[in-house]
Design a protein around this nucleic acid. Structure first.
Lengths: 346, 346
DNA sequence: CTGTTAGCGCCTTCAT
DNA sequence: ATGAAGGCGCTAACAG
């Protein structure tokens, strides 16, 4: 609802009338083409705009210009710290450039995801930043091929093809982390994931894990991959942890969390089982959401810069829109940081 | 970018042409007015729409209908778990009703906030859900008076006036929490806030605190209110904690965190000072973000249902838009929950 | 049942 | 330096 004045909607027409000029002139004024306007009329328009508190209708502008200056952003769960900070990064860059952000939460559901994409398209978004479930990748690729800038953030394409991507060095960092665990004397590492499915981020971490298990630990890691359903309280993974620990009671074992959710689950489960991270079993994994230092003996985590992931994704979109930068497909891999704490020491 | 076909933008006109009918008929078809269409043409249009993968342009629809079916949501920090879950609640309700969500992050800055609101207005949003900084409340009230539905979420109006509001029972719960601390034998409680300013939520909690300090603890709480600047690592409040504790070394003292950020700061500071929550000093406060149970001896927290706050705010907006429900100004106060753990015991 | 016409608010040639 | 006219894609009278 734009400001009103005695019941009349304030449009460019109304401003023109009040200022005694044509709407063409007002339009020029609004778009800063001052060279074509006399100082006199320019001032007159300015004062009318000011007085009426006129706000141009972006909807009408968009219809005419065929550009909404709006980016659609689709995340799998806006409630998770990772996603929300990712969105903050996106928002920060877009806002700076006068772009608007439409947000949708797929809840990791392919149907919701598809609906959200359709809605974005109908809204005439100028670009798409996606935390894809993987199920609609063919469709997304096709949209990109039709000319719509699409960037994958914290996900890569789950099918053959090329698309702009920004993500963390998932595989490499998982390898590094595993190597670190090996150096610390652990002989078996359990990989705990609240589902893997088509989630390429989790798959990338899994692949780094499997590789290092084979090459460094010298065993087939598939035996120690534990998928479970998270209930947010550790109940989903407790039995799997127990099984892992008892199966390898003769070894030095550690638990690896594929992400922050799994990490919380593991810690909750250990607490219920009266097991101490560090002393009884090694614990480490992805995502430092602010409390890793506070849970004794300090939890070894891999911290990601999700703000940067979002910011870079937004920058790519804007580059694509302006035609700037290398037109070749971009794959940005951002570093993460292994933060060693007590839970993987001795 | 809507789907293309040999370079032609697919519009309602194009569909009409292909189907050999007028665009009016196609429009009727799209809007489900099937009574006015013969089964034959109806089928013809359906197949053309399907074949062309036609998507109506919501921009054009909005221009015509003067309704964008879009709600603007302004939060102070989308990166915080409180806000992001709030947004999830909003998104969930809006999505269900086919409304879109434009998001902006004010970073608690009044200028950013004002710009975001202006941008929302230009985008012709049908309503506004705001996590107000307080600095633009007069403006927001005026917008509402001009007919734009505006709902305050997790904030109330900082100036005289009435506006739809959804928030947690901040004052009452803070009182309850203080009374609980009194019963537990604490005699002094420090109120720690990462800034209060015009933030009405923090002010409400402060007022509950001051009231109970006077009525139950029997002292002027203003002496034990500590405002500081958060750096995310506790460094901002460590000296204030130290001062509080040493000043009242003869008393049984507890620290109260005004929100989750302050809570993390306090815990980090205590850790650095080698002080134990619970044993050395009582600790409790707002926001349970999943780890309260895991930090020994368990941190007593006040858990808010921020999803519900968002969902209720969105429902009010939709009610206002549809004219349903009580037209009187609504003040929804949602319950929160005091979760007692070891940090306030003995 | 279907089409014609006009117009939402704005921008953009093309004249003047 | 300024304006008139047309059109972006869609909906809604108003006619038939």
């Amino acid at each position: 609802m734009t400001a009103k004045h005695g019941g009349t909607k304030i449009t460019i027409n109304y401003v023109a009338e009040k200022a005694g000029v044509s709407k063409t002139t007002v339009s020029r004024f609004l778009n800063g083409r001052f060279e074509m306007i006399s100082a006199d009329t320019r001032e007159r328009i300015a004062s009318v705009v000011e007085e009426l508190d006129y706000r141009p209708n972006r909807i009408a502008q968009s219809l005419k210009s065929r550009s909404s200056r709006t980016i659609g952003c689709l995340v799998s769960d806006i409630g998770s710290p990772f996603s929300s900070i990712l969105v903050k990064g996106i928002s920060s860059v877009l806002n700076e450039q006068g772009y608007r952000l439409i947000l949708a939460d797929s809840e990791d559901n392919p149907v919701n995801e598809r609906n959200a994409i359709d809605s974005f398209l109908e809204s005439q978004v100028d670009g798409l930043i996606v935390n894809s479930t993987g199920a609609n990748d063919r469709f997304l690729l096709q949209l990109r091929d039709n000319g719509l800038p699409v960037v994958f953030a914290d996900r890569c394409l789950s099918i053959p093809g090329e698309i702009d991507t920004v993500e963390t060095n998932n595989t490499e960092m998982t390898c590094s982390c595993m190597q670190y665990l090996s150096r610390m004397g652990y002989t078996k590492v359990g990989f705990f994931a609240n589902g893997i499915g088509k989630n390429t981020t989790r798959m990338a971490r899994l692949s780094g894990y499997l590789k290092t298990m084979e090459e460094v630990f010298g065993y087939d890691g598939r035996d120690t991959v534990y998928e479970y359903v998270s209930h947010g309280d550790g109940s989903g993974c407790a039995d799997k942890i127990l099984k892992f620990i008892t199966t390898y009671s003769q070894e030095r074992v550690a638990l690896f969390a594929v992400n922050g959710v799994a990490m919380l689950d593991i810690l909750n489960a250990l607490q219920k089982m009266k097991l101490q991270a560090g002393a009884d079993v090694g614990v480490c994994g992805f995502d430092n959401w602010g409390w890793a230092d506070l849970i004794p003996p300090g939890i070894t985590t891999i911290a990601q810069d999700s703000f940067a992931v979002g910011a870079e994704a937004a920058k790519i979109i804007l580059d694509r829109l302006s035609g700037e930068g290398d037109p070749a497909c971009r794959k940005i891999v951002l570093p993460s940081k292994l933060e060693v704490r007590g839970s993987t020491v001795r």
